[in-house]
Amino acid sequence: MSETTVAAPLPGIFYRKPAPDQPPYKAPGDAVAVGDTIGLIEVMKTFNPVVAEEAGTLVAFLVDDEDAVMAGQPLYTLEA
């Protein structure tokens, strides 16, 4: 098995949940399919989904919920 680190596609604030009172999209250990939403990046009040481009198992998030991220910054690790 190989691990892949997935980077932020754009700068903004990373959210792991669709809303504060909702559960996270994914948690470490969860299966991930191509097209699954992993989180959101907010840029100027616009929420852009972070969508999985590979299938596998989510190993770990490399940023915390509501952290500011830069484009190209590692977000999470996926094991294929």
Rank of each mutant, 00 (worst) to 15 (best):
residue 7 A to E: 14
residue 13 I to Q: 12
residue 36 D to Q: 09
residue 48 N to V: 06
residue 65 D to E: 02
residue 28 P to H: 09
residue 52 A to Y: 02
residue 51 V to W: 01
residue 74 P to Y: 14
residue 60 A to V: 01
residue 11 P to Y: 14
residue 2 S to N: 08
residue 21 D to R: 09
residue 64 D to K: 13
residue 2 S to C: 00
residue 10 L to H: 14
residue 69 V to S: 06
residue 45 K to S: 00
residue 1 M to I: 11
residue 41 I to C: 03
residue 27 A to I: 12
residue 38 I to L: 15
residue 45 K to G: 01
residue 49 P to C: 08
residue 70 M to Y: 04
residue 7 A to P: 00
residue 64 D to Y: 00
residue 59 V to T: 01
residue 54 E to T: 11
residue 6 V to A: 08
residue 35 G to E: 06
residue 39 G to R: 08
residue 27 A to P: 00
residue 25 Y to I: 09
residue 34 V to I: 13
residue 71 A to D: 07
residue 65 D to K: 03
residue 6 V to P: 04
residue 18 P to R: 11
residue 16 R to W: 02
residue 11 P to G: 14
residue 60 A to G: 00
residue 31 A to M: 04
residue 24 P to N: 10
residue 49 P to D: 09
residue 71 A to I: 04
residue 63 V to E: 05
residue 7 A to M: 10
residue 53 E to K: 09
residue 64 D to W: 02
residue 77 T to K: 15
residue 8 A to C: 08
residue 33 A to T: 06
residue 38 I to D: 04
residue 30 D to G: 01
residue 73 Q to C: 07
residue 58 L to G: 00
residue 77 T to C: 05
residue 38 I to P: 02
residue 29 G to V: 03
residue 16 R to P: 01
residue 29 G to D: 00
residue 57 T to Q: 11
residue 80 A to L: 00
residue 79 E to F: 00
residue 42 E to L: 06
residue 7 A to Q: 13
residue 58 L to I: 07
residue 39 G to E: 05
residue 37 T to Y: 06
residue 24 P to A: 15
residue 50 V to H: 13
residue 45 K to N: 01
residue 65 D to F: 04
residue 62 L to E: 07
residue 24 P to R: 10
residue 13 I to T: 15
residue 11 P to W: 14
residue 33 A to R: 13
residue 35 G to F: 10
residue 4 T to H: 13
residue 42 E to A: 11
residue 20 P to N: 11
residue 62 L to Q: 05
residue 12 G to I: 12
residue 80 A to W: 00
residue 24 P to C: 12
residue 58 L to Q: 05
residue 49 P to N: 10
residue 78 L to A: 07
residue 37 T to Q: 05
residue 56 G to R: 03
residue 79 E to Q: 12
residue 76 Y to A: 04
residue 62 L to H: 06
